[in-house]
Amino acid sequence: MKPQNEMNIIFDSRSSNEGFARSAVSAFVTQLDPTVGELNEIKTAVSEAVTNCVVHAYADRIGKVFINVRISDNSLVTVKVRDKGCGIADVKQAMEPLFTTAPSEERAGLGFAVMQSFTDKLRVRSSVGKGTTVTFQKRLSCRVNNV
C-alpha cells in the first residue's frame, strides 16, 4: 500500500536515545489524532524495539538504529525499527515471553510480548551478523482525516 505520509530517523544506539525515539514517532503519529491509549501503546512498542537494539543488537558497541514510520489508508501506522547488529539466531525462541539473554541487565524478557500485545501485527526478520528488522502495524481509531 502506498503510504500517504512517511518519515525516517537514524540515530546512535545509545540508551539516552530511547526516549527520543518514542517521542519522535509519537509526534509524527499525533497528526492522526490518536487516543492517549493508542499513542501510549505505540510509544511502548517503539521503546521495546529500540531497547532491543541498544541492549542486544549492538551489545558491545554503538551502531545506528533506523526507524521508518508510514501512515497509509488514513489510519494505518506501520513502524519499522531496523539495526545492523548481531542478529537473532532463533527468532521464535527470542519472542517467547520471559526469554532473555540479558538477565544481568534486569531485562524481564517481555519486549516482544509487549510489542505483540500493544500492536495489531508484528513481524521480526533477522539474519545473524547482519541485523534485525522489527515491523509492527497498528490501525488507529482515527477520528479525523487530515493527512
Binding site: R22, N40, K43, T44, S47, E48, T51, E105, E106, R107, A108, L110, G111, V114
Partner: peptide, 11 residues
C-alpha cells in the same frame, strides 16, 4: 510512561 524495564525494576 513505562515500558517493560519497569517490570524488570520491580522484579
Amino acid at each position: 510512561f513505562m515500558d517493560s524495564s519497569g517490570i524488570g525494576l520491580i522484579m
